[in-house]
Design a protein around this nucleic acid. Structure first.
Lengths: 124, 124
DNA sequence: ATATGTGCAAACTGTTTGCACACGA
DNA sequence: TCGTGTGCAAACAGTTTGCACATAT
């Protein structure tokens, strides 16, 4: 896997803040650094980075995938109100039945849905 | 919410087996009962059923959503090899930090990724 | 030098929607 | 009857891909 400006800037952007971005948001942001970046390139790089485990993805009920440069195990909370995604620690044991069944677990995703404090208080 | 043949057959189909189906698979299957069913109707009904909590959805890394008529809390295991989705018990405490933060959790989704026993043995 | 990445645009795929008609209550 | 659901087809949005060119190694 070759080292290109595009890939480097995408990864730098995703690592800069502990937030979660769609491909389109990444495209818009990174284009300020790499003006004629194309969306196809964003998708291709996100694919590579996912495969290499340099980023993770969050599938919400939303129609698009969100990407996360913070790759330590953690759970996500998706707010029904403001649609923000929050990180939370993950203290979870893989159900022993999975291992008993002879399955090998490579990764796990935990997503909570509900209302964050702000939206709950504001009744959004 | 009105009681229609289409809705009833979709729900019956999803409840018949403890499996997970895409909208297209549901469409194909239910069309044997309701010959001129349309895919739009399938999507509209899946939307209603989800809202009413009569079914749940599983977002895998796949591009389409899978629907599940078994709605007791449980985790899903998505096999990288055969792409099958398996059910497992969910024994998980919501991270206390979520509640401490004043967030209200309405639902949670836990998905494991890896290889099921067959695919692991067969090295698929 | 050469294989891999890029930009661009077109293609693809799952999903949504507007409309006229059908049907459940 | 009247409001909601349906079938159909077209529209949509996110994502993928083929191609010719560029670039990292």
């Amino acid at each position: 896997m070759r080292d290109t400006v595009q890939k480097r800037e995408i990864l730098t952007f995703l690592r800069a803040k502990r937030q979660h971005y769609s491909a389109a948001q990444i495209y818009d942001a990174v284009r300020t650094k790499v003006p004629n970046l194309s969306l196809g390139t964003v998708y291709r790089n996100l694919g590579h980075l996912l495969e290499d485990g340099e980023i993770i993805s969050v599938e919400t009920s939303d129609k698009c995938v969100y990407y996360d440069g913070f790759i330590q195990d953690h759970a996500h909370f998706v707010c029904d109100g403001c649609k923000n995604i929050f990180d939370f620690p993950l203290k979870m044991d893989i159900a022993s039945e999975v291992l008993d069944a002879g399955f090998s677990v490579e990764s796990e995703k935990v997503v909570y849905y509900g209302k964050c404090k702000n939206c709950r208080d504001a009744r959004i």
